[in-house]
Design a protein around this nucleic acid. Sequence first.
DNA 1: GCAGGAAACGAACGATCGTGCTATCAATTC
DNA 2: GAATTGATAGCACGATCGTTCGTTTCCTGC
Lengths: 196, 196
Amino acid sequence: MSKGAATRQAVLAEATEVASRLGLGGLTIGSLAARLDMSKSGLFAHFRSKEALHLQVLGYARDAFVAEVVRPALRAPRGEARMRALFDNWLESVNVAAACLFVSASTEFDDQPGPVRDQLVADHRDLSDVIAQIFRTGIAEGQFDEAADPERFAHDLHSVMLGAFHSRRLLNDPRTDTWARQSFEALLDAARPKSG
Amino acid sequence: MSKGAATRQAVLAEATEVASRLGLGGLTIGSLAARLDMSKSGLFAHFRSKEALHLQVLGYARDAFVAEVVRPALRAPRGEARMRALFDNWLESVNVAAACLFVSASTEFDDQPGPVRDQLVADHRDLSDVIAQIFRTGIAEGQFDEAADPERFAHDLHSVMLGAFHSRRLLNDPRTDTWARQSFEALLDAARPKSG
DNA sequence: GCAGGAAACGAACGATCGTGCTATCAATTC
DNA sequence: GAATTGATAGCACGATCGTTCGTTTCCTGC
């Protein structure tokens, strides 16, 4: 990796950290440069616009999220076990900057049309598709009901995670994980094949 | 209402609208003043600090949310009917500025300690208490299981709403309401007294 | 209708915002 | 090791940020 690419990665890592706390809107070139002991213009030259920085931060966060949450889960056996692995990793990522960034950026930009919002929608769709696909495999394995809607399951699972992030990060409620796991089990139970 | 109080209300209404789209962090005195055809200093004099403005916006949004979502629901018969009324009103408020503001501000400030965050936590607790109390009444009425946890129900209902706001506002998914209602019914079913 | 107080304004503050230039410095290629 | 490319710094720009101050205008209670 060339020198430029290396510092760019370092900038994106730090930017992801900051943006996960202050939101993408709270991310400023100046303070970011100060944190990294760089000049404002030197840092800026890597991105050429603030929106480009936003997009690259989202790309970096997406890669981190996939590497930390999604990819390890895909090594679990297909179907329900894989779904459980994904859920576990996701729930553990409640303090991982990349995961938090997507939650905060999604509510921050849901009313601000543009490339950033578009990217967030696309990323959400990708994750939703992964969940739905795992679910479909579970159907094929006989673990889930053929009549169940994989996309609705993905939506419901996402809701559970949003609630968990809210409960853990804003309220700091110690019951968060217990409740999230119970909700997850309820989702699985509801998706089980009807016996008879 | 005196002149000052009147314009202050007008400012808070507009500020709530703007903050619901751009977040509290995206709310600036200058642009807010321009929207209301006021001078920056004239508007600022009402609040004396930006944080005070933030807190008063939250108070205004809270009152609006209670007036639009909570209070009407309390006129429904106690127990399950009241819970359904609350859910219906809440789901309809997906495009009401005050309701959106709480969702976005909660994720925006969950990592920024201070009075604003404290206020958000308090407001969340208040709403959670209302839900839990309605649930407890439903238990007393025999509609819900004595063994069910009212606070967990409140948390789960909140998760469903967060998912609905996300799905409607970011993804603009037409299935949002259907899915939210199905999730709500599932929560109610899970809370029903066990027969036998 | 006048006095006194509240409300709004205009101008300015220092700081910081995002974004350009130009120059210097380091790294890579021959 | 010289030449070339790319990375970083310095400086400046207009704009806007939150905030203060002194003045003016409007409202209100007598």
